[in-house]
Simulated scan of single mutants.
Amino acid sequence: MYPAPPPQAYQHKGVPVSAPPENFYDMYPAPPQARLSLWSTGLCHCMDDPGNCIITAICPCITFGQIADIVDKGSCPCLLSGTAYALSCAVGLGCLYSCFYRSKMRSQFDLNEGPFPDCLVHFCCEPCALCQEHRELKNRGFDMGIGWEANMERQRRGVMGNPVMGAPAFPGGMMR
């Protein structure tokens, strides 16, 4: 965490001593914490993905299920997560349940929390928070419609989400 004290003899006010001064570690600032990355889109950029915005407005449990499937790495299927979210919304605890997944996702991808805590974001702007999380996963290369397992299969085969089109390949190289 801190640099090791120098191996040579220490001097305190010009007099050699056998141990570092008590304030040796105070002379060095604490190492910077791991830099957290920013979200790829803002909380209110719902119109960057209008299809998901409409689905989230009509049935947020679909969007939540897709997010939870990826964040849980396939351990809890989309349908089960979406149903649990719908039931938690029915008893008024939907924002608490989805807040947990936002925090888990931020931890997995080292994302900045932002100016407001996750629970406050979900309590005040639940649909926008879900859309932002969905966009973030999509922008990180996940195909949100196929789930964790299919995304991992694509990755194993070398097929990445959001492919960038390059120049066409010619067999045997270019010929003149």
Rank of each mutant, 00 (worst) to 15 (best):
A57G: 00
E22H: 04
G94I: 13
H12S: 08
D49I: 10
S75V: 08
C53Y: 14
Q8P: 01
W39Y: 14
L111Y: 01
A57L: 02
L87F: 01
V71L: 02
D48S: 05
Q11A: 03
Y85N: 10
C99H: 06
P3Y: 05
R106L: 09
R35Y: 06
F64D: 14
G14F: 05
S88W: 10
A30Y: 05
C46E: 10
P77D: 07
N112D: 07
V71I: 07
A19V: 08
H12P: 03
H12V: 11
A4F: 00
L111C: 09
C61F: 06
F64M: 14
D48K: 04
D72P: 03
S103E: 07
D72W: 00
A84M: 14
D48C: 05
T83Y: 15
A9F: 00
W39K: 03
S103H: 03
G65D: 15
K73C: 10
A9L: 00
A30L: 14
E113G: 06
P77E: 14
W39G: 10
G92I: 08
P50D: 11
C44Y: 15
S88N: 07
T63I: 07
V71E: 05
D26R: 10
A4T: 00
V15M: 05
A84N: 12
L93D: 09
I62H: 10
A30I: 12
W39M: 13
I58Y: 04
F100A: 06
P21H: 02
A19H: 06
L80D: 15
C95Y: 13
V71S: 00
T56E: 06
L38M: 07
S88H: 08
Y101C: 05
A9E: 01
L80H: 15
M105H: 01
C89G: 04
I67D: 12
L80P: 10
S37Q: 07
Y10L: 01
W39Q: 13
L79S: 13
A4D: 00
P50C: 13
H45M: 13
P31C: 04
K13P: 02
R102F: 09
P3W: 01
S98N: 03
L36R: 06
P77V: 09
C78G: 08
S40R: 15
Y101K: 11
I55F: 08
P3G: 02
D69P: 11
A68L: 12
T56I: 09
A30V: 14
V71N: 09
I54P: 08
V15A: 04
H12W: 07
Y10H: 06
S98R: 04
A84E: 12
M27Y: 12
S37W: 04
F64W: 09
P32Q: 04
Q33C: 07
Y10F: 08
L79G: 12
Y97M: 12
A4V: 00
F64T: 11
L93R: 05
F109Q: 12
M105T: 03
I55G: 11
C61Q: 11
E113N: 04
Y28G: 03
Y2E: 02
D49K: 09
A34Y: 13
C53N: 14
S88F: 03
M27I: 14
R102Q: 11
C46D: 11
Y25A: 00
A68C: 09
G14A: 09
G74E: 05
K13C: 03
R102N: 07
H45F: 13
N112R: 05
